[in-house]
């Protein structure tokens, strides 16, 4: 199969690569450039585990082809706040509110939350639940994920909620 050259910036580093046209963005991230923080949970675009920010917008990286990301910039969970000592407010909130257990849905949940709060900095509980509808978590029952998002909103808006 012929390969197509792409150039994508991931977490601040630009990668020049050649991919099969059918390669999904998530597989390119994980297998070609070793950004394994982003994970795969399904094959029907149902779970949201693979969510990344593509030019600031959250997308399911299993439903985007790598070639479609050519020339764009991606933020994964590994680049949201580089290094374990740096914390994005959403990451802090998930830790403080116990918004994760096994952590498999977490990269997607966190990035979906970043996007959600970008669009609606002070969402209601119902807006949070609707906003995260595309991200499945099997461990937490969502109760503490909702609390995490509310707390992140507090942190990011300086308590304006």
């Amino acid at each position: 199969m012929s390969h197509i050259p792409i150039s994508v910036t991931v977490d601040g580093t630009t990668y020049d690569s050649e991919v099969e046209p059918r390669t999904l963005l998530v597989h390119w991230l994980r297998e070609d450039i070793g950004r394994v923080g982003t994970v795969v949970g399904c094959d029907t675009s149902s779970c949201g585990a693979c969510t990344v920010l593509l030019d600031g917008q959250s997308v399911k990286s299993c439903s985007v082809l790598a070639v479609q990301a050519d020339g764009q910039s991606i933020t994964t969970i590994q680049g949201l706040a580089e290094g374990e000592d740096n914390w994005h407010p959403v990451q802090t909130a998930f830790k403080e509110c116990h918004g994760l257990q096994c952590g498999y849905c977490t990269p997607g949940m966190v990035l979906a939350t970043v996007d959600l709060l970008g669009e609606n900095p002070t969402p209601t509980e119902a807006e949070i639940r609707e906003g995260l509808e595309g991200n499945l978590c099997r461990c937490t029952g969502y109760h503490n994920i909702v609390k995490s998002v509310q707390y992140a909103s507090d942190l990011m808006s300086g308590g304006a909620r």
Binding site: R30, V36, G37, V40, I77, Q78, Y104, V110
Partner: peptide
């Protein structure tokens, strides 16, 4: 949580 929230995880599928 620090490693899980920063994507510094070691899932079996990561292994090459």
């Amino acid at each position: 949580d620090a490693r899980l929230l920063h994507g510094q995880t070691n899932w079996t599928d990561n292994i090459q």
